[in-house]
């Protein structure tokens, strides 16, 4: 089986949705401490890989190992506790909660997150609540949203919402972040902000697996690129090497083959 040196390894993953083979014997492994971009044309199976790794999807076949431990068949909650957390392409923020509450909702180990504690030990609960909010505030500061802590999500700009997604995934305390298109829809300053943030997080030791469409962004942030096509890994290498391959470029931009 996978050696202890392998950080995350994915073996022979296959998944079929009706007539569509979303993942087809997909195998790869990555190291820690890097930003690894997952690229490929639409329908290549990028988000499906995320769903499979984080326990949201049951595989037809294949397995996932994190630091040598099998994750197959484990629910999303346990996978977060094991150290892998994700964001969603369509954000999935809690619109009626404030930015701070969104982040707080992902902070682990809170007292009073069940009714008995909340009802019968209210003081202890309030103390834990204060601590959680401090933690959450710290994380908002880290992503540059401290001044929006009390704003409701629906009043935030799109760029701010994207940052909040990253803040929320950070709050889980996971060491490996699976970010699904963290820069899509952004441009200019907002885009720059996210790229700076991701690089800084990597430097602080957070490994990242990022689904990314923008080749310019890939070149700027990726330490390594996984090229996916029709649910299968076609190539793995440095961004330069992948970009230079004319065959991959044709698949990516031309949609041929």
């Amino acid at each position: 089986m996978a050696s202890d040196q392998t950080y995350l390894s994915v073996k022979s993953m296959s998944k079929r949705f009706g007539g569509l083979q979303a993942l087809n014997d997909c195998t790869f492994s990555i190291d820690s401490g890097k930003i690894i971009c997952l690229v490929g044309p639409n329908g290549a199976g990028k988000t499906t890989i995320f769903n499979a790794i984080t326990g949201f999807l049951k595989l037809d076949q294949g397995s996932v190992f994190f630091r040598g431990n099998g994750l197959t068949g484990i629910g999303p909650q346990k996978i977060v506790r094991a150290g892998i957390a994700r964001t969603f392409q369509n954000l999935r923020l809690f619109g009626d909660l404030t930015a701070l509450e969104n982040v707080a909702s992902a902070v682990p180990n809170q007292f009073g997150e069940e009714p008995l504690g909340a009802l019968f030990r209210p003081i202890h609960t309030a103390r834990s609540q204060r601590k959680t909010r401090e933690t959450a505030r710290g994380i908002l500061e880290e992503v540059g949203l401290a001044d929006q802590a009390e704003a409701f999500v629906r009043n935030l700009s799109y760029g701010e919402q994207k940052l909040l997604c990253i803040a929320r995934v950070l709050a889980t305390g996971a060491e490996l972040l699976l970010l699904d298109e963290p820069t899509s829809g952004l441009s200019g300053d907002a885009l720059e902000k996210v790229m700076v943030l991701l690089r800084r997080l990597r430097d602080e030791g957070r490994s990242q697996l990022v689904v990314e469409h923008n080749t310019r962004v890939v070149q700027q942030i990726a330490d390594e690129v996984l090229f996916l096509h029709q649910g299968h890994l076609m190539a793995q290498g440095t961004p330069e090497a992948i970009m230079a391959d004319p065959k991959l470029a044709e698949i990516y931009f031309g949609g041929a083959l």
């Binding site: 984080t54 629910g75 999303p76 009626d96 509450e101 909702s105 909340a118």
Partner: peptide, 21 residues
């Protein structure tokens, strides 16, 4: 309490609640 916040979050997005562990 955090329980109340969890319930509010649950109404809005169960998947995101699961993703938060």
């Amino acid at each position: 309490s955090p329980f109340g916040r969890l319930l509010m979050a649950l109404r809005e997005d169960e998947l995101a609640v699961a993703a938060a562990g």
